[in-house]
């Protein structure tokens, strides 16, 4: 079964691949590149916190109450230099920050990721199935979004109790709806495109159309929101910890550290809160820089 060969051009138009184009596009913003560089450093620091840190701030045996509240640059009896000072329990602030970054990033990434999965699935299903299911799901989303996130998280923690894991759960519950709404909106547009119609007319199974065809084409906004949500979640976790509802005292998340030093701020022991605060700020700003640029680059009108 062959047909007189039709002329075919051996060469494709020399367009660079989408990914390469997007990378080029991304690197055109100095802010975003800086943000990304800083973020990578922060992530490396956080991952290797236990190797890099001069001290293990979780290990109470390493702490000496006599070293409490030392200013930056002080030296301990054991010869350890506290570059950023210590807190009231004699915990090295630098180590605290490194471990704190680890906790904060874990909370942020874990909650953003899980919320993205749940929200995306809900949004996709709502858009694809439509009708009653869509109405019911979207009412739920509306309800969820009408609560301020922080209130939602506070309520959840009041029920679940303190602890890092519970913070993650609270954040997932507070944030999934954002994804659901955005993904549904994108999927509604994509669903009308002819490749979805084609997939239907080929009688492909529903799950296949959903996950093979619809999902990959709705991912761009998810990536953008997820990036921004990591920053938001880190901020929220810090707020919750600051309010005394997040991580327990023995798990030094950044919010926890800030909260610990807050009472000393006015007495001149600025470093206990100040340095963790800076770390938090730098993390959130650099994530947002990257996220902003991703939003521009992944904008469907550019692709």
């Amino acid at each position: 079964m062959t047909i007189a060969p039709l002329p075919v051009m051996p060469e494709a138009p020399p367009e660079p691949g989408r990914l390469r184009r997007q990378l080029q596009e991304f690197s055109r913003s100095p802010g975003a590149v800086t943000g990304l560089a800083v973020l990578i450093i922060i992530i490396v620091l956080a991952v290797f916190a236990s190797v890099i840190s001069p001290q293990d701030p979780y290990d109470l045996t390493q702490l000496d109450i006599l070293d409490g509240r030392l200013p930056p640059g002080s030296e301990s009896f054991s010869g350890l230099v506290y570059h950023l000072g210590t807190d009231s329990q004699g915990r090295d602030i630098l180590s605290g920050i490194l471990y704190g970054l680890r906790t904060s990033l874990t909370v942020g990434i874990l909650s953003a990721f899980a919320a993205a999965i749940i929200g995306t699935t809900v949004g996709l299903i709502a858009a694809y199935i439509g009708g009653r299911t869509e109405n019911a799901l979207m009412r739920l989303v509306d309800l969820q979004l009408s609560f301020p996130t922080i209130l939602m998280a506070l309520m959840m923690l009041a029920i679940l109790g303190k602890g890092v894991l519970n913070v993650v759960i609270a954040l997932i519950i507070a944030e999934w709806a954002t994804y659901a709404r955005t993904v549904r909106a994108t999927a509604l547009v994509e669903r009308e495109k002819e490749y979805i119609e084609a997939a239907r007319s080929f009688r492909l199974p529903g799950w296949r159309i959903l996950f093979r065809h619809l999902l990959p084409n709705c991912l761009a906004p998810v990536i953008v929101i997820a990036t921004m949500q990591v920053a938001r979640a880190i901020g929220l976790e810090a707020t919750l910890s600051f309010l005394g509802l997040g991580a327990s005292v023995t798990e030094p998340s950044l919010g926890m550290l800030i909260s610990n030093g807050y009472q000393y701020l006015l007495t001149g022991l600025y470093w206990i809160s100040f340095f963790p605060g800076i770390a938090l700020l730098v993390t959130i700003v650099s994530i947002n820089l990257v996220g902003d640029r991703l939003r521009d680059v992944l904008n469907p009108r550019n692709t």
């Binding site: 495109k193 002819e194 490749y195 119609e197 084609a198 997939a199 007319s201 080929f202 093979r212 990959p216």
Partner: peptide
């Protein structure tokens, strides 16, 4: 089967 007007839109990119 159907062949659509816009050949790009009918293919999953």
């Amino acid at each position: 089967q159907m062949i659509f007007q816009n050949p790009m839109a009918a293919l999953n990119p």
